[in-house]
Simulated scan of single mutants.
Amino acid sequence: MPEPYPFFNQGEEMKNAHTYNVYVNDDYVGNKILFSQCEKIEDLSDYLNSKGFYNFQAEAEGDHYHLQMTEQDQGEVVKDELHSYLRLN
Rank of each mutant, 00 (worst) to 15 (best):
P2N: 14
E3V: 14
E3G: 12
E3F: 15
P4G: 11
P4E: 11
P6D: 04
P6K: 03
F7Y: 11
F7T: 09
F7K: 09
F8P: 00
Q10C: 04
Q10E: 04
Q10V: 04
Q10Y: 04
G11V: 07
G11S: 12
G11N: 13
E12D: 15
E13G: 05
E13A: 11
E13L: 10
M14F: 12
M14T: 11
K15V: 02
K15C: 01
N16V: 09
N16M: 10
N16Q: 13
N16L: 10
A17F: 07
A17I: 09
A17S: 15
A17Y: 07
H18G: 07
T19A: 12
T19D: 11
T19V: 14
Y20T: 03
Y20H: 06
Y20G: 00
N21P: 04
N21V: 08
N21R: 14
V22H: 03
Y23A: 00
V24C: 00
D27T: 10
D27Q: 14
Y28L: 10
Y28A: 07
Y28F: 15
V29C: 04
V29H: 00
V29P: 03
G30D: 09
L34R: 05
F35V: 02
S36F: 07
C38G: 07
E39P: 01
E39D: 05
K40Q: 03
K40E: 02
I41K: 02
I41M: 01
E42I: 02
D43S: 06
D43V: 04
D43E: 08
L44C: 00
L44T: 01
S45D: 04
S45R: 02
S45K: 02
D46N: 13
Y47G: 07
Y47I: 08
L48I: 08
L48F: 06
N49K: 15
S50W: 09
K51A: 10
G52S: 12
G52D: 13
F53A: 01
F53L: 01
Y54Q: 01
F56E: 01
Q57S: 13
Q57W: 07
Q57A: 10
E59C: 12
G62Q: 08
G62M: 08
G62A: 06
Y65K: 03
Y65W: 04
H66D: 02
Q68T: 15
Q68I: 13
M69S: 09
M69V: 14
M69Y: 08
T70I: 10
T70Y: 06
T70A: 08
T70G: 06
E71R: 05
E71G: 04
D73Q: 09
D73W: 06
Q74D: 10
Q74R: 06
E76I: 02
V78T: 02
K79C: 03
D80C: 09
D80G: 08
E81L: 11
L82A: 08
L82W: 07
H83T: 10
S84M: 05
S84K: 07
L86G: 00
L86W: 00
R87H: 14
N89Y: 10
N89Q: 11
N89F: 09
